[in-house]
């Protein structure tokens, strides 16, 4: 029962945080110079007052700000995220349309970075005193310090333009109309470069964390005990050290998984990946208020969901944690 009420409490808090984010962003976005009507009028190359008034009335922008906020929030409470002024489609449709691409990209990048990061970090920890360990750490540091967008540009230059191995941009081959397995393969090929470049940075992060974490765990008493008992070093590495060293990494990864979704703007821009990060940037530039708010809502929602998921995994991985501890 305590567990259920804990979960309920957390969900309640999450809802409050989400609503607060919406209100905060609402005022933030409306503080920006220009409004969607001005942007659309500007793009039209010609305008007059009647045109602007028409647009503002249609968008409801002629109302006072509190009224607009009230309308928007009461819509959201009924799960209606409004209409994108510019794209002339419901915000929810637009977001759900783009979300899978982003989840695929970040999911792939996340798995790659976590898997290879932990492997590399473990190797580096086991060879802490040897040159090979230093080389791994040197590489990790290098990836960590390189601007992500720069790696992306270089990757396109090398693998798409020069070698012509992988497509430079996009989600699938336009006009090919593949189905079934062929489609999956096509998307996978397109996914390769963006997922790798996005994953590289996080891989470096996890490599470094795994190593540090493993080294510090290996100094703890229970490991010494295990050693004293004469357990094989491999068993100690796997069962005792790695398992315990993974805990802080799970926490960090959970935090970052959510952040990645909103942070993929640069990768999505360079690789023309039709995801939510790019949509967000465009919505911001076009002052497409409803769309931007909707995207922020979903990004925040994902962060919260991942945090909760992390908690669950954490509990599974470490039974010592009791309820109530945060």
């Amino acid at each position: 029962m305590a567990y259920v009420s804990l979960i309920l409490g957390r969900v309640g808090k999450a809802v409050i945080v989400l609503l607060a984010i919406l209100v905060f962003n609402f005022f933030l976005i409306h503080a920006a110079p220009g409004d969607p009507a001005a942007v659309m009028a500007g793009e039209a190359g010609a305008t007059d007052q009647q045109f602007l008034d028409d647009l503002r009335e249609r968008f409801g922008l002629d109302q006072p700000l509190p009224v607009q906020l009230w309308r928007y929030m009461s819509g959201v409470l009924q799960l209606d995220f409004g209409y994108s002024y510019r794209q002339q489609m419901p915000v929810l449709d637009l977001i759900l349309d783009r979300l899978p691409a982003t989840l695929l990209l970040t999911g792939a990048a996340f798995c790659i970075s976590l898997l290879f990061g932990i492997i590399a970090g473990t190797l580096a920890a086991m060879r802490a005193k040897r040159p090979s360990g230093s080389i791994i750490m040197g590489l990790a540091l290098l990836f960590y310090a390189t601007p992500l967008y720069w790696v992306a540009m270089m990757a396109v230059l090398v693998f798409s333009v020069t070698l012509d191995w992988l497509p430079a941009y996009g989600y699938s081959t336009v006009g090919a109309d593949y189905t079934g397995l062929a489609h999956v393969g096509d998307v996978a090929v397109h996914l390769m470069l963006p997922a790798l470049t996005l994953g590289l940075f996080f891989m470096a992060v996890y490599t470094r964390m795994t190593r540090t974490s493993m080294l510090s765990v290996s100094q703890q008493d229970f490991v010494k005990t295990a050693r004293a008992k004469g357990l094989a070093p491999g068993v100690i590495q796997r069962r005792h050290i790695l398992r315990n060293a993974l805990l802080p990494i799970i926490t960090l990864a959970g935090l970052q998984a959510g952040q990645m979704v909103g942070g993929a703007v640069l990768t999505e821009t360079v690789f023309a990946w039709p995801g939510i990060g790019r949509l967000m940037y465009e919505a911001l530039m076009q002052r497409d208020y409803n769309l931007l708010l909707g995207i922020f809502f979903f990004c925040a929602l994902l962060v919260i969901l991942f945090n909760m998921l992390t908690d669950v995994i954490y509990r599974l991985a470490d039974p010592r944690i009791k309820q109530g501890a945060t």
């Binding site: 808090k13 945080v17 989400l18 607060a20 984010i21 905060f24 962003n25 933030l28 976005i29 503080a31 920006a32 110079p33 935090l255 959510g258 952040q259 979704v261 909103g262 942070g263 703007v265 640069l266 990060g277 967000m280 940037y281 911001l284 530039m285 931007l292 922020f296 990004c299 925040a300 962060v303 919260i304």
Partner: peptide, 24 residues
């Protein structure tokens, strides 16, 4: 901590972009 969590829930880079764009 709620306040801190609030800022951690909005994706960092996205928030930075919005803030700079808004303040010019």
């Amino acid at each position: 901590m709620r306040f801190t969590e609030f800022f951690q829930t909005i994706p960092n880079f996205a928030l930075a972009i919005v803030l700079v764009a808004i303040m010019e």
